[in-house]
């Protein structure tokens, strides 16, 4: 906080709160690496935050959280499989486990490989555009599928691809001009086999209508999906499609 503060130093606060877009965030990190003032101020912000956190009222974690988390962490060494239900119970392989939670799914190794290891900071996630690596994953994927809009959603555009690795299927989907959500609603992606729907992730696009999703399925890779559809759902937890289909494609 001295007179040598440059314009760039002004961005520290928004940087700290993850509020810069990707380009600005990366530019600021370059500045940060060379600015002792910002380094010191950031360290002070972090230290004061830690003090505050120690003063918070403690919340008791769920009793079985420890075993869930440690199991997931140690399992991540050897396998990419993940078997968490919505309420977090660990369960054995089950026929229809596509109802698993997208939150958990997003943490799978493929997503990590696509994003975290490449960039390694939060700006990728906070950026308003799909990342280069995701776009590339879609473009490079030979079997990318372009979804067809239903009648009143003609401006929408969505592409998806399935990746297979170690017997696991991961769906990658990029959506543009998805602008017809009401407050509280989400877009839900479904994969269908013989009219049986499997949840394949939810997303809420940004203000420009762009969204993307990376979702690893529990189902074994030998299921032959015959259709993909995107619906609007009032809740991210609906087990079966209840809203209107906005886009779909048969395989």
């Amino acid at each position: 906080m001295n007179n040598k503060h440059s314009k760039e130093c002004e961005q520290l606060i928004d940087y700290y709160n993850g509020q810069l877009n990707r380009a600005d965030g990366e530019a600021f990190e370059k500045h940060l690496a060379e600015c002792p003032d910002c380094q010191q101020e950031l360290a002070e912000l972090e230290a004061l935050n830690a003090d505050l956190v120690h003063g918070l009222e403690q919340v008791e974690p769920p009793e079985d959280m420890e075993s869930r988390i440690l199991t997931n962490i140690f399992d991540s060494d050897t396998e990419t499989n993940e078997k968490q239900t919505e309420n977090g119970d660990v369960k054995p392989d089950k026929k229809r486990s596509g109802t698993s939670n997208i939150y958990k799914k997003m943490m799978l190794p493929l997503a990590a490989a696509l994003f975290l290891s490449v960039i390694g900071n939060i700006y990728l996630w906070s950026s308003q555009e799909p990342s280069d690596s995701l776009s590339q994953a879609l473009v490079n994927e030979e079997e990318a599928v372009t979804l067809q809009p239903s009648a009143e959603t003609q401006d929408m555009d969505a592409q998806m691809a399935m990746h297979e690795e170690d017997g696991q299927q991961t769906l990658v989907l990029e959506a543009n001009n998805f602008t017809n959500l009401n407050e509280g609603e989400v877009y839900q992606v479904w994969l269908m086999e013989d009219e049986q729907p499997y949840r394949a992730g939810t997303f809420v696009p940004n203000e420009n209508g762009n969204g993307y999703i990376v979702f690893t399925l529990d189902e074994s890779a030998d299921i032959n999906w015959d259709m993909v559809a995107i619906t609007i759902e009032g809740s991210p937890h609906n087990d079966t499609p209840q809203g209107d289909i906005v886009m779909s494609s048969e395989f």
Binding site: L56, V59, P61, R68
Partner: peptide
């Protein structure tokens, strides 16, 4: 565990997200 969970809960007001966050940190 408890400290970080409490903090995540303070920020997210969601037990589910807090658990995911704690897992993410230790992962």
């Amino acid at each position: 565990e408890k400290l970080l969970y409490s903090y995540a809960y303070k920020m997210t007001s969601s037990h589910e997200k807090s658990e995911e966050v704690v897992q993410d940190v230790f992962m």
